[in-house]
Design a protein around this nucleic acid. Structure first.
Lengths: 193, 193
DNA sequence: GTCTATACGGCGATAGAC
DNA sequence: GTCTATCGCCGTATAGAC
């Protein structure tokens, strides 16, 4: 792997775990196996490095949502459930890119809010669009109630995923997965025909 | 107000907004109206100040949950809805203590994880206990489905609140409130008799 | 209890040799 | 592109006068 790629990956993991201010260029350098001054041969500043990571992660996020929905399940219910559980699996398996995304959506570092927001707004809209499409499909085939707006349902879906992401810290994999299944049960009862 | 009280309050607001590493003793001092060296007459370190804030906030959090449930509505549905919307109102009205709580539940500062966790575990359990009690009551009087466990429903409830807290950054008050009402609709459909 | 002054370390970033 | 050396700044924290 190229040094620059490695730099993006390793710094992303540190940012996800310790935040922007909690991650120093020295720590990144150590993880990559360089001296910190060498990092500046690849990036002119910590800020530009962070924003490059952000760009990469927001693109991956949209891709992940699209792919998880595009599974081989027959019914809309099963497709949505599969997608939901894939996301949960990524959460609990310590997927750093998901953690990076969730962390900085909520708590952008000072002075970088504007640039960050530009990336995140784009990906949030795109992810919502993908989900709304699938839900409308479920409404058309008569699986999902037409009393609710597709957008409203999609918002609830993401809201639950984000809520679940907050609980990783308290529970282990089997517990959270079980928990996610119970939450899905409540959600599905809420939107089914 | 005593200096020490003011110190707790003002530093809490800064921690909530900018995180632990993002908040310096100098900034806290400036907000309180002191020089930063004077803070050390009240607290021996930034860490002990932060942990004192944490203790205060976790106590307040449990109190808030208890109080919001203890409203004058007649039905279980209305009591739970009221409580949900009070929490949402606090979220959108920039209630710093709620933001402090949510932020550090998810992203504890390095080296303080253990101490923080001790406080948070206690308050999370207590808050869950309070909600479970109200839900069981709703099941007894026949408003809420007995097909679901009360604990499972309570978890979903908190999960939605936490998910909603993630969205403050994107929406204004009326939008988020409307959004919360729509989410409640889905939730209630999911748990009602 | 609050101030001024200061210690000391870590931070992001740069210069220049190889 | 990576290194050593170094800069200037800001972080937490302390000493001592008032």
């Amino acid at each position: 792997m190229q040094t620059k790629e490695k730099l993006l990956l390793e710094s992303m993991e540190l940012f996800a775990a310790y935040g922007y201010e909690g991650t120093s260029m020295a720590k990144i350098a150590e993880k990559v196996g360089l001296k910190k001054s060498s990092l500046y041969a690849h990036y002119t500043s910590k800020e530009t490095l962070f924003l490059d990571v952000t760009e990469k992660i927001t693109n991956e996020y949209v891709h992940l949502i699209a792919q998880s929905i595009d599974n081989n399940e027959q019914s809309s219910e099963k497709r949505l459930y599969q997608s939901f559980m894939i996301h949960v699996k990524d959460l609990v398996s310590d997927d750093a890119s998901i953690q990076f995304y969730n962390r900085f959506v909520q708590y952008p570092p000072q002075n970088l809010e504007k640039e960050l927001f530009a990336y995140l707004e784009r990906s949030e809209e795109e992810a919502l669009r993908i989900l709304v499409k699938e839900i409308e499909n479920g409404q058309t085939v008569g699986e999902i109630s037409k009393d609710l707006e597709a957008k409203q349902i999609a918002h609830t879906y993401f809201c639950l995923l984000e809520g679940l992401s907050n609980e990783i810290i308290f529970y282990d994999y089997p517990t959270l997965q079980h928990h996610a299944e119970r939450i899905w049960e409540v959600f599905w009862r809420g939107i089914r025909m």
